[in-house]
């Protein structure tokens, strides 16, 4: 069992857990993820490691409620335990393998969308701690849905916030900010790391491709084991089939087949919808899901 040292609600549907997980906290690097199960009969949910404390043996997870599994997870409180935390899984970010001298000569841009802000954070922090500067764009739908602004501000050289509705920071999508920075604000970037919803990563990559900025993305396909055993997570990158859990999750964004990846993410849509309704309504659920027979 893995104790939740601190459970926090960040926004209406985004939560953060600091969890004691000795082996993961000792071994992990930015870019890696864990698979958690909230209860003994729960789904396996992959979540990026958003921060880690080697001394106290804890990791930080930030997640958004999108379905039955994450809803159940969100009901846990400080002092409760996660049934399982497996990892660290996947490869560490490429940045960790690049020489620091090389990194210091590069100007690096991070683009974070929504809950994707959390996985960007450990990379920005890791770079800063190793003496490397980087700029960060965070995009959120509205001011209320923005997370980790203060944390990011500590480590980012320049932090640009934008909201879809203009309720805070700049107004518009992250792709617009990238274009504005490069085209009208005189910025130059040698590389970009974009993490967020598939659709946002897709359009970021279209933008950076036009601007000739090599871009890394972190893919979040459906996973089961996370160790290369099932192939649920397969994605096409540069015409080749890769298993995101072992070959990724980070890939060259300009080579990823995002359209296929987005179709594959929706494979269980109706079944997940039913499970979500059932979890949300609990004992009060009396049909309508087309599954339980309660409507008859």
């Amino acid at each position: 069992m893995y104790e939740i040292i601190n459970a926090k609600k960040l926004t209406d549907n985004i939560y953060s857990f600091v969890v004691r997980a000795e082996r993961v906290a000792s071994a992990c690097l930015p870019g890696q993820f864990v698979i958690v199960r909230s209860h003994c009969d729960a789904e396996r949910i992959p979540l990026t490691i958003c921060d880690y404390d080697r001394e106290n043996k804890t990791i930080t997870l930030v997640f958004q409620v999108v379905g039955a599994g994450s809803l159940r997870l969100s009901r846990l409180k400080s002092g409760d335990c996660l049934h399982d935390v497996a990892g660290p899984l996947g490869r560490a970010s490429e940045l960790c393998d690049t020489s620091l001298d090389e990194l210091k000569n590069k100007s690096i841009l991070f683009v974070a969308g929504g809950v994707g802000t959390a996985p960007v954070f450990p990379q920005v922090k890791w770079l800063k701690e190793h003496g490397v500067d980087s700029d960060v764009i965070i995009g959120a739908k509205t001011k209320e849905m923005l997370i980790m602004e203060n944390e990011m501000d500590q480590f980012a050289t320049n932090l640009y916030i934008t909201t879809d509705d203009g309720s805070y920071g700049r107004h518009g999508l992250v792709t617009k900010v990238i274009e504005d920075l490069v085209k009208s604000e005189g910025k130059h970037y040698d590389m970009c790391v974009a993490i967020g919803p598939m659709i946002m990563m897709k359009f970021c990559c279209l933008t950076t491709k036009a601007l000739n900025i090599p871009t890394t993305v972190s893919l979040n396909p459906i996973m089961v084991d996370g160790t290369g055993m099932c192939g649920a997570c397969r994605v096409t990158v540069g015409g080749e089939v890769k298993f995101a859990c072992v070959d990724g999750p980070e890939f060259d964004g300009h080579l990823v087949d995002f359209d296929e990846a987005m179709i594959r993410q929706n494979i269980y849509k109706t079944e997940e919808g039913r499970a979500y309704l059932k979890e949300k309504e609990g004992d009060t659920h009396h049909g309508g899901c087309g599954h339980c027979g309660g409507e008859q």
Binding site: V224, D225, M229, C230, G231, A232, R234, T236, V241, E260, I263, R264, N266, I267
Partner: peptide, 15 residues
């Protein structure tokens, strides 16, 4: 082979 509805036996059986 990457279409929705193609699974490895491992994935299907593990589920």
């Amino acid at each position: 082979e990457n279409a929705n509805g193609v699974f490895s036996a491992n994935e299907y059986l593990t589920r």
